[in-house]
Design a protein around this nucleic acid. Structure first.
Lengths: 236, 236
DNA sequence: ATTATCTATAGATCTATAGATAATGC
DNA sequence: ATTATCTATAGATCTATAGATAATGC
């Protein structure tokens, strides 16, 4: 739970500050994020007050507002931080994996472990993104899409190297979204899963699922599925 | 978007009221839910005031508090209502489907259409459940689990009738969760999907995925996936 | 008489800022 | 002199309730 203490530059452009010293802004905003992320996880965004954030960050409410212009700014900083952490986890995992056809299972495993480690944070994104002003909500969704994009790349590479059966772009894209969301599912159904599954069980079972959807030659099964569809299928 | 106007009894026991007439309580609470669900979807729970709810429901703030004891009570009523609607949609779809081996695709299709229709409401559950007091949060999660249970039943029936390959209980349970969540995914990634996919495309592609995970004889692929797993896998 | 509804407001916050003070660098 | 920080509070809400009023049924 102390993974947010790792030192990485925060991308905080676009948020106004009264303070000239860029480095100080950087440092203070990191303090703000570290304090806020824990409070938000425990109490939610709305029930957390700006005073609590300032106190937990170690300075006064007046100083807090030298580094941000509104409470929403804090939420945005927190969301940016969380996505940066998740993205770092996934890209590092990608670097570790070779180009073999094991790659997919390895990537899934690494990603699900990142999701497990950052469970509270991912949940926070799901719950509080709506509270952001439109302009930043959009940025958060772009972040989400970029992470999914990492999986698209892996799948595309494996596909081009012949380790996967041909899939059209759509199916491939959707598979990437499914991987993303099945990782998140571990976080937002944790209240159920954590009682019945160890993370390793979950990874194993879901990997089986995903590999089956992606690795089996589709001709036979896709046909079968398509025939099952109602004859009325088309546009509603 | 007016599906919440359908007349169904609300399960509202457990929330205190000052009013004696049970029927009136029933009617007024339906007004409250109809008003609140729209406001919550548009503004979120916290940004919606009790006054707004009262006004939209057509009575005064004083009267509102005769039928509920706190603002959280309203959120709980809304969550109960939403789950009742989703569950009704799914069970009705289950009734329509025969016991054939088409059943699964039909159920998925019906469920995804329910998710599409109730998109805003499902999103609301994801975002605001955390705001409920512990006791009601638990009830909401039970509701969620009961809906997933419907899919468990379908899969178990198909399995016992020999329409699915043998799966152990865990794999079957997880498949049910996956169906639930992939339906929800359409709602909480709608900002992306709705621009690139029609609901029918989404249903078709996801049905292919799910049927492949569930209908293909698992021996070959499961082995393959297991071998890919890291040797260190066990407890972390 | 009893039940339902309304108006008016107590009481408790909470965000954001103005203006005062302390620290830093030339 | 300039930059950073603090204290104190203006101003704006918002939930929940007390007490008054209207409607209903015996």
């Amino acid at each position: 739970m102390d993974n947010h203490l790792k030192i990485r530059p925060l991308k905080t452009d676009g948020i106004p500050t009264q303070i000239k010293d860029r480095l100080l802004v950087e440092r203070r905003r990191r303090q703000i994020v570290d304090a806020a992320v824990q409070l938000f996880v425990k109490q939610g965004f709305h029930k957390t007050t700006t005073r609590q954030i300032a106190r937990a960050a170690g300075f006064s409410i007046g100083s807090l507002y030298e580094y941000i212009a509104s409470k929403e700014d804090v939420l945005y900083l927190v969301c940016e931080f969380i996505h940066a952490e998740v993205e770092r986890g996934v890209t590092e995992a990608l670097k570790r994996t070779g180009g073999t056809h094991n790659a997919l299972a390895e990537v899934i495993r690494a990603y699900f472990l990142v999701c497990n480690r950052m469970s509270d944070f991912i949940l926070l994104i799901y719950q509080e993104t709506q509270c952001l002003p439109e302009q930043w909500k959009k940025k958060v969704l772009e972040n989400e899409l970029r992470i999914t994009g990492l999986f698209v790349e892996v799948l595309a590479r494996l596909s081009s190297e012949g380790h996967l059966p041909e899939m059209d772009d759509r199916a491939l894209e959707l598979a990437a979204h499914n991987i993303s969301v099945l990782g998140h599912m571990w976080t937002f159904r944790r209240w159920f899963f954590s009682r019945h599954y160890a993370i390793e069980d979950y990874i194993r079972l879901q990997t089986d699922f995903i590999l089956r959807t992606v690795c089996v030659k589709p001709e036979k099964t896709v046909k079968r599925a398509s025939n099952i569809e109602r004859p009325t299928s088309g546009l509603e």
